[in-house]
């Protein structure tokens, strides 16, 4: 051991570093060789993510090209920001951005308030059987696909046969409504459908936070004669505020991407409803699948990816400041 150290010290400096480097490399190689099996196990997953996720990331360059399938994607001409220039010249870019943000904003605010309300209420059901039962029932809509939801909404809103036009509106003495061509009503309809589908889910998250609150707080509050309302306001809400903050920030990070199924399936892809139901995701889809307009569609898609990415980084930095453990990174 000592011998070798002296030998190394005697060598010219250049050799020495090279030797140290080679030795470090050899050590690293033998380490990899020793754990090759563990390393081999991650290959299928990484290969999959490379194809399914990373190739499309490289594919964002399409937005800067004039796609011509005769030439092939890679040989198509570069056109710089032309696709973006077209996109932002139209009214469309503004409409879809506005719709996406307004819908998601309403979903975040209403969804959070209602979910907290339901979670607090659910925590008041002391009978375990009923608590489970109610929870399962309000969670049921979360389980089903948006296609089925579209059928359910159709049964309610169909112009000729729908339950609203046949039973509810006559009962209220109102005239039938042409739901699927009246764009002005859809912000309310889609918000209702979204809440109906997701409240069960978000309520579970808040319920988990409420259940975690130390019961002693409530016991001593009751000894002091605090009312139910007072306990909720002064114990429950303040103690679940961290959860509320984190959930809200994470949702804001995703405000630029919307639930495609909700906006595509539920309005039955109706053109008449587009002014109020078109969001970035449906716009990109229609551009690609209906018009085959790769330029415009990929430009809108990249616009969404980049702003979405920036928002995620930004909100994550905020979450990190609040609570390191809950930050994504």
């Amino acid at each position: 051991m000592g011998d070798r150290a002296i030998q190394t010290a005697d060598m010219p400096k250049e050799w020495r570093t090279r030797k140290v480097r080679t030795r470090a490399l050899n050590k690293r190689l033998s380490y990899v060789r020793r754990h090759w099996m563990l390393l081999a196990m991650v290959v299928p997953g990484m290969l999959y993510l490379f194809i399914n996720n990373y190739l499309p990331m490289f594919g964002i360059v399409i937005a800067f090209k004039d796609i011509n399938f005769a030439k092939g994607i890679w040989q198509s001409d570069w056109i710089g920001f032309d696709n973006f220039a077209y996109l932002f010249q139209t009214q469309d870019a503004w409409v879809i951005t506005r719709n996406t943000i307004l819908y998601n904003g309403a979903f975040i605010i209403l969804g959070t308030v209602i979910a907290i309300f339901v979670a607090i209420l659910l925590n008041e059901v002391k009978n375990r059987f009923f608590s489970r039962l109610y929870q399962s029932i309000i969670l049921l809509p979360y389980l089903i696909s948006m296609v089925i939801v579209a059928y359910l909404v159709l049964a309610l809103l169909n112009e000729e046969n729908g339950y609203m036009n046949r039973y509810v509106l006559p009962l209220l003495g109102l005239d039938p409504v042409s739901w699927y061509s009246d764009a002005g009503k859809w912000p309310y309809i889609l918000t209702l459908v979204h809440l109906w589908k997701t409240v069960g889910y978000s309520c579970i998250v808040y319920l988990a936070a409420i259940v975690g609150i130390n019961q002693e707080y409530y016991e001593s509050a009751m000894l002091d004669g605090a009312s139910k309302w007072r306990q909720i306001r002064s114990i429950t809400i303040p103690l679940i505020t961290p959860t509320i903050t984190i959930m809200t920030l994470l949702a804001i990070g995703r405000i630029f991407s919307s639930d495609f199924g909700l906006f595509y399936q539920v309005p039955l892809n109706s053109g008449a409803l587009q002014p109020t139901t078109d969001v970035i995701d449906t716009y990109v889809y229609r551009g690609l699948m209906t018009f085959g307009d790769f330029g415009m569609s990929s430009a809108a898609g990249l616009y969404q990816s980049v702003v979405g990415f920036a928002l995620v980084l930004f909100t994550n930095a905020l979450v990190r400041r609040k609570n390191r453990d809950l930050a994504l990174f």
């Binding site: 993510l49 194809i51 399914n52 996720n53 990373y54 190739l55 499309p56 990331m57 490289f58 594919g59 964002i60 399409i62 937005a63 994607i73 995701d281 990109v284 889809y285 690609l288 790769f294 569609s297 990929s298 898609g301 990249l302 969404q304 990816s305 979405g308 990415f309 995620v312 980084l313 994504l328």
Partner: peptide
């Protein structure tokens, strides 16, 4: 990183 950034529908479709 796949959670943070997505290429979007068009490149995904073309892949």
């Amino acid at each position: 990183f796949t959670l943070l950034f997505q290429g979007g529908l068009v490149p995904f479709y073309l892949v």
